[in-house]
Simulated scan of single mutants.
Amino acid sequence: MTTLNGLPAHVLLVHAIVVLLPLASLLLVLSALWPAARRKLAGPNALLSLLVVALVPITTDAGDWLEHRVASTPLIRAHTQLGDTALYVAIPVAVLALAVWWRQREAARTVPASLESPATESVVASPGGPGAAKLATRPAVARRVFLAPASTVVTVVVAVLSVAAAGAAVYDVYRIGDSGAQASWQGQFSPAPVPGGHGG
């Protein structure tokens, strides 16, 4: 993708990353730390995080296209190099968002064997006599899980990793955005009002 509505696509797509990646990071932290939020937000955030991962290479490819169509400066090169790091912070956010969602899904579907359903009862012959019988019970079996949704240790590890990944993503978006603003605007405006300008 190169242009949108006559403008370089990068300058439009970058706004989606600047908004959506920090939003996905915030939702990741909320869903990792707060069970009530996890139940409501884990699924939507998993989808949002995957969308961000898909948008990042589209945005950086559009940025590479634009880089070859503007004057090369150290600020432009620095911004391009920083932009390439966005995928490295978006992927951990998405992986952890998927893990949080999957663990929530498993937790919702897994019930202790004693609570899942009434035990199956069957009548068997009793050695006490031909007319005597007793009830035999077969305990219910809990569903199989893969990401230990009931484990406090795993929950804490996922929460710590989520906070770290979210913090790294937000900081990286800040650095990339700041370098882009520097590349676009440094030396491109007057510190004093120009004659004929608005209010001049």
Rank of each mutant, 00 (worst) to 15 (best):
A16G: 09
V18N: 05
V19Q: 09
V19I: 15
V19P: 00
L20G: 02
L20P: 00
L20M: 11
L20N: 11
L21N: 06
L21E: 05
L21H: 07
P22R: 13
L27I: 04
L28I: 05
V29R: 03
L30T: 04
S31P: 04
A32E: 03
W34H: 04
A36N: 07
A37L: 09
A37S: 12
A37R: 03
R38D: 05
K40S: 10
K40W: 12
L41V: 11
L41N: 06
G43E: 12
P44V: 10
N45E: 06
A46E: 13
L47S: 05
L51R: 10
V52T: 03
V56S: 01
I58N: 02
T59D: 01
T60G: 02
D61H: 11
A62E: 00
G63L: 03
D64Q: 09
W65C: 00
L66V: 06
L66H: 07
S72Y: 03
T73A: 02
L75W: 01
L75G: 00
I76N: 12
I76M: 15
T80F: 12
L82S: 11
L82D: 07
D84R: 14
T85N: 06
L87G: 08
L87F: 07
Y88M: 09
A90Q: 01
A90E: 00
I91T: 13
V93S: 05
V93L: 12
V93T: 05
V93A: 08
V95R: 15
L96W: 03
L96Q: 05
L98T: 07
L98K: 07
L98V: 04
L98D: 13
A99D: 08
W101L: 09
W102Y: 12
W102N: 13
E106D: 04
A107V: 02
A107Y: 10
A108E: 14
R109E: 01
R109K: 03
V111P: 00
P112C: 07
A113T: 14
L115G: 09
E116F: 10
S117R: 15
P118L: 06
P118E: 15
A119R: 15
T120L: 14
E121K: 15
E121M: 14
A125D: 09
S126I: 11
S126H: 14
